[in-house]
Simulated scan of single mutants.
Amino acid sequence: MKIVIIGLLVTIFAIHESQQTYAEYAEYIDYLDQIHQIKTKPIEDFTTLSKKFDDLEKKFEDLRKTVTAVKTAELPKFVKIGSKYYYIDHAEEVNWFVAVDKCRAMDANLAGLQSMEELKAVSDKLTERDYWLDINDLGKKGVYQTLSSGQNAGFLNWHDGEPNNGSGNERCVVLRKIRSKYAMNDEKCEIKHHFICQKNQLE
């Protein structure tokens, strides 16, 4: 009886071992098959992948050119007048504070003309009646300074009778054309005018 039981146990163990061995063998065969598929994968797959990459690279380059073109088109056009660069706005009218922000957004400042030569050179490019300048007396009434430097304005050229603080609160300076001549006039900062931005050099 004991011999029969032992025989059955040996048989069961042998079957179990053979099943485990077969499972391992099947797994090994599957692994070899995968390696074989990788080794024999058609070279056309690589060519196709390479072409897709080239196409993607071309699309990226086209997109880069498009973005650059759009940015360039949106950049304000600064022109050299004398030794400095100016952006003269002819399209919109804003108050003095907005004009300051718009120039700063261009890495520039409102123009602070420093000589009669600069005034005449810039005036030749103007087409509208009024343009905001960097000059103001917001710090102390009657003391005109440039916002960009915080120093007293080195050059002032007023129209006759100006500055007169006519409305009682004219604290910003505009370049105004009267009888075909551009000169400075004090003005309420909230009034909307065109503006001139200035850079000493381009990037």
Rank of each mutant, 00 (worst) to 15 (best):
V4L: 13
I5W: 13
G7D: 08
V10T: 04
T11H: 07
F13E: 01
H16F: 13
E17P: 00
Q20E: 13
E24I: 10
L32E: 10
I35G: 07
I35M: 09
H36K: 14
P42K: 15
E44S: 15
T48A: 09
K52D: 12
D55E: 15
L56A: 14
K59P: 02
D62H: 14
R64T: 10
K65T: 09
T66N: 11
V67A: 05
A69Q: 09
V70K: 14
A73L: 07
P76F: 11
G82K: 13
S83V: 10
Y86G: 05
Y86I: 10
E93F: 06
V94I: 02
A99N: 05
R104E: 02
M116A: 09
E118L: 00
E118N: 00
L119W: 07
S123R: 10
D124Q: 13
T127C: 01
D130N: 15
Y131K: 05
Y131C: 04
D134S: 07
D134N: 11
D137S: 09
G139I: 09
K140W: 03
V143M: 12
Y144L: 06
L147S: 01
S148K: 12
G150C: 04
G150P: 04
Q151K: 15
F155A: 04
H159I: 03
N164Q: 05
S167C: 09
E170A: 03
K181C: 00
Y182T: 03
M184Q: 08
N185L: 07
N185S: 11
E187K: 02
I191G: 00
F195I: 03
E203I: 06
